[in-house]
Computed example of a mutant assay.
Amino acid sequence: MQIVILSDTHMPRMAKKLPRQLITGLERADLILHAGDWQTIEVLEELQQYAPVIGVIGNVDGPELKERLGKKEWIVRNGITIGITHGDGKGGTTEKRALTAFQTDSVDIIVFGHSHIPLLKQVNGITLFNPGSPTDKRRQPQFSYGILQLTETSFELKHVFFEDKS
């Protein structure tokens, strides 16, 4: 199973359309996870044309998205429990807020966004993953999204980096 992981698409403010590099990944996706800051419901609807989408709201998402999505989600696929949150809020770093969101849940992976900074690391046996942004790299050298490859017994997470968001 191949899962595309996104966050901070900020469309249409930061891009009028999904980047070609991202579309290449979406065309192979069995599932799409989005960690918030879509900006509009149209982004969700467009992503659903490629694969089922599970996501959460971020701090810039409007009422239509808030009616359909929560601030926290978790799913189990192939025995791997994945928590999804945006990571915004007060106090601590984005990473710490993501960990706090699932402190009472047993998760293998926490997917979060907000900072636009790609991250893949282990903390107390939990894999933290921030895909970065495919449309708003801020101070990062490249745009990015993530791929989670699940087998029956394991998982592999990686970033896909690219230069041009057109």
Rank of each mutant, 00 (worst) to 15 (best):
L18R: 07
P118F: 04
F112L: 00
Q49W: 00
L148H: 04
H159Q: 10
G55T: 05
I32T: 06
F155R: 05
V123K: 15
D108M: 11
G125C: 01
W38L: 10
I23T: 11
I147Y: 00
H86V: 02
K71D: 02
I41R: 11
L18Y: 01
I110V: 14
L150F: 09
E64T: 13
I80H: 08
T9D: 02
S115V: 03
K71N: 06
I110W: 03
E163N: 15
N124S: 14
G113Q: 05
T9N: 03
P118R: 09
S144N: 10
G91L: 12
H10E: 05
F143W: 10
Q48M: 13
G36V: 10
D8I: 14
L150G: 05
A29C: 06
E27L: 13
G113D: 01
G89F: 09
K71F: 04
T93Q: 12
V53K: 05
G70L: 09
I41S: 10
S144W: 01
M14V: 08
S133I: 04
V123S: 14
D37Y: 15
G62F: 03
P52I: 07
Q2S: 06
S144H: 07
K17C: 01
T40F: 06
I147W: 04
Y145I: 02
R77N: 02
K66E: 12
I82C: 01
E95F: 12
K66I: 10
E45N: 13
V76P: 03
I3F: 02
F162K: 06
S154M: 03
L47W: 01
Q142S: 12
D88L: 05
F143R: 09
D88K: 07
T100K: 15
V107P: 00
D61L: 14
L18E: 03
L31W: 09
R28F: 12
L44N: 10
E67Y: 12
G132V: 10
P131H: 05
F161G: 03
Q149T: 12
V60C: 11
K158S: 14
L33S: 05
K17G: 02
K121M: 06
L22C: 09
W38K: 06
G36K: 09
P52F: 07
G91N: 14
T135N: 08
H34P: 03
D108P: 13
P118W: 01
G113I: 07
I80T: 13
S166M: 10
I82A: 02
N78M: 08
T100L: 13
T100P: 00
Q103Y: 15
V56E: 01
G36C: 14
H159T: 03
D8F: 09
L148W: 04
P118I: 03
L33F: 11
Q122D: 11
A29M: 07
P12Y: 06
R13I: 13
L128V: 06
T127D: 02
V76A: 14
V123C: 08
E67P: 01
H34M: 12
V107W: 00
F161E: 06
T153C: 10
Q21H: 14
D88E: 09
I80W: 05
V43C: 04
G58H: 09
F112S: 02
R77H: 11
G62N: 13
I41Q: 13
P52N: 08
I5M: 00
G146Y: 01
D105R: 15
R97I: 08
I126T: 05
